[in-house]
Nucleic acid binder design. Structure first.
Lengths: 162, 162
DNA sequence: TTTGAAAACGATAATGATTATCGATTAGTG
DNA sequence: CACTAATCGATAATCATTATCGTTTTCAAA
């Protein structure tokens, strides 16, 4: 779906719940559409939105993100670094929240594939737990950092580690 | 392993890293050993420790929990409710962090079983990501709340939802 | 056992993210 | 166009966590 279309869809969503469509909300959604691959914090969004709508307040950004989260347009996620991050929901892969967090460079990448189909079935059956959503996060060392580490160990023996 | 033994083990851990064994640390570990099944927040621990050592300060509890986390004696976990929780690591099931969070009653239960063996293999192979740890959390409706909901819908039609 | 330095402590101030408040402004129905 | 609830910006308040600092304690070496 094109950006245009998705914007229209989101506007419709707002409207159908009798929320008002304000320039601030529109600008916020634009920013989210233009930065889909990042995991923006509220602060990040605030700074980006200020370019489009300099008069916007931080509180409004928080309010808008919270609203979009309730409408299930964005997902509010948490990598344990002290800030919430907000991701536009992709169509289809409705609630696939699989992340690889690198403990060396801090990079976060995303796995689209549904890894948990079997696991979910098992949990629903064995614990009689009705799953609505899930979060799966792996902490480890990303490809790039492994490569970098390998290169450096050629030059000299590994020394300090933080 | 008995509580006594585990306490001794933890003391040894501290000592081997030349950390000092203070009454405050001892009392904190005691509390953790006595409340293994709960997911205590720092505040929770603080209140419980005050019974044993009333003069302890909240900052010391935070410091101690942070230290125990670094020593890999406890795991600092995050359910997205705004507070960190601290769980004693069980022997064996070293880093199995699977949780079921009920979106109705807020209850958190734990799955001991390793659900992710296959998934981990796949991620390590396909993304060349060296996994050190993981978190898997399901959000949904627990057994008890499903039962309760079913009973209530006998009495009258479901009405409001928050 | 005494002693001295580093580690740890308690109290509390500071921080940083998020939320609540409030008077002013605006979207959108009629 | 007018009206009213929704929304806004500014900013104070909150809440968990961390930093600071002067005092106290642990523990190893004398």
């Amino acid at each position: 779906m094109a950006v245009e279309e998705r914007m229209t869809f989101i506007k419709k969503q707002l409207h159908s719940q009798s929320y008002k469509l304000t320039p601030q909300r529109e600008a916020t959604v634009e920013v989210l559409l233009e930065n889909e691959e990042d995991h923006l914090s509220a602060e990040d969004v605030y700074l980006l939105v200020k370019d489009k709508a300099p008069e916007i307040g931080l509180a409004t950004v928080y309010r808008t993100l919270e609203l979009l989260n309730e409408l299930e347009i964005v997902d509010k996620i948490n990598f344990g670094d002290g800030v919430s991050r907000y991701d536009l929901r992709k169509e289809g892969a409705d609630h696939s929240h699989h992340h690889l967090v690198c403990i060396q460079c801090g990079d976060v990448s995303e796995i689209e594939e549904d890894l948990l189909a079997e696991v979910e079935t098992k949990v629903e059956r064995e614990w009689n737990f009705k799953i609505k959503d899930h979060r799966l996060t792996f902490h480890g060392v990303c490809n790039a950092c492994q490569t970098k580490a390998a290169e450096q160990s050629h030059q000299k023996e590994t020394v300090g580690q933080e």
